[in-house]
Amino acid sequence: MDVHVRDLRYFVAVAEELSFTRAASRLFIAQPSLSKQIRQLETLLRVTLFDRDHRSVALTAAGAALLPQARLIIQQWEAAQCEISHVVTAGRMTVTVGFHTRIGRGLTAGVTARMATLLPGWKLLFRQVSWSDPTVGLASGDVDVAIAWLPMPDNREFSWRVVATEERWVALPVGHRLAAQEVVPLDELADEPFIALPRTAGQLREFWLGNDQRPAPARVVAEAETAEESLEAVGSGLGLVLLSSGNAEIYQRDDIVCRPVAGLTPSELAVVWRARDERPALRVVIDACARCLCDQPGAMTPAG
């Protein structure tokens, strides 16, 4: 049986982190699954790659020998994927844009118009991705570029440009005790039930629970895969969700009231792409997305 590139990615993550816990978090998989994959790799290669005990993880001589070769194989595979993607994209003249929440903000019409001038004959496809994938389809290769809420996984695989900042608001069911307030202090949400993103969303889940600023974590009563699911839960009275001010406008519903939250830093919307993807057509789309979003009221152009 041949070794899979995925197994080498897992090995490199553990080798760089020297921690199965940190590596699992970086890879968005459960630690037991990661340990199992590493054991299978060791069995396949008939070597021990890591010395493990309860306090530390260290590379063996065999692991140290494999590490630079594994990195090279991964880099070559990514280069091959990028080249194939370039050929396919050029052939089909299509760029796929991923998103978690409705984009709105005039993006679709604006970018389509710019592409008609700069890339005649090309078209955009928009694809909604579940909150369970914090890379918005970029890691899997399902999309070419994403319109995403930060934070993104900080693993040096992605680049982004912040194109807008929007205050964080809270969505409440009509009739909720806080619905009559013009602004809701963060302290007032301390004991409220919240609908969370899936655990695999990582830091994004924490951000949209407000846990980055709360003195104690939010009380989670349910999880939702999409913005639509989370707002259905709010409308039914199950719990509350945080959302951006722009999405409060986009997702208006008769059974929900949205209010600004005092005490939270703003959210950031970004155009995100794979760092090694240098296709000229993709760069045109990135620049067009950034320009269209930065032209919207309340948006900002990042320094540099």
Rank of each mutant, 00 (worst) to 15 (best):
M93Y: 00
L197C: 08
L124E: 05
S140P: 05
P297Q: 09
P215R: 13
R102A: 14
A62F: 03
S33A: 15
L264P: 11
R52I: 13
E157C: 10
R199A: 14
G237Q: 01
I256Q: 04
R283G: 15
G137D: 08
R6H: 10
A148E: 03
V129G: 05
L49W: 06
E182Y: 02
Q128S: 14
I256L: 07
L264S: 06
S56G: 04
D295Q: 10
T117Q: 12
P153W: 02
E206G: 02
A216G: 03
S230P: 08
P215M: 12
L209W: 09
V143R: 03
F11L: 01
L124V: 05
C294L: 05
V234M: 07
R279Q: 11
T60R: 00
L67Y: 02
V5L: 11
L107S: 09
E188M: 13
A222L: 02
S159V: 04
A224C: 09
E228F: 03
T112G: 08
S236A: 15
A171F: 14
V87G: 01
A290C: 11
E278R: 10
F50S: 07
R55H: 13
Q128F: 05
T200R: 11
R156H: 13
G246N: 10
V183K: 05
T108S: 10
T94A: 08
G141A: 08
H86E: 10
R114H: 02
P134Q: 07
A70F: 02
G263W: 00
L178K: 04
E223P: 00
R22Y: 00
Q203R: 13
A281H: 07
A109K: 06
P266E: 08
Y251V: 00
A218P: 07
Q128W: 07
V261P: 11
R9Y: 03
S130R: 15
G63F: 01
E225F: 07
W77N: 05
V162K: 08
D255P: 09
R253M: 09
G63H: 02
A90H: 05
T48Y: 13
A180K: 06
D133K: 14
V183P: 01
S230Y: 01
H100W: 09
W169R: 04
P173D: 06
V111T: 10
A224D: 03
E166W: 09
S35F: 00
E223S: 11
F126P: 01
W131Q: 12
V87S: 09
S132F: 13
R177F: 00
R276I: 11
V87M: 08
Q69S: 11
L293S: 06
F11M: 10
L238Q: 15
L41V: 06
W273C: 02
R177Q: 11
L118P: 12
A179Y: 06
A80S: 12
R102S: 10
L240T: 06
V111K: 04
E229N: 12
S25A: 15
T94D: 03
T43C: 02
R279N: 03
A146F: 08
A70Y: 03
T43R: 12
N211Q: 08
W149G: 13
E192M: 14
L27M: 07
L138S: 04
A299G: 05
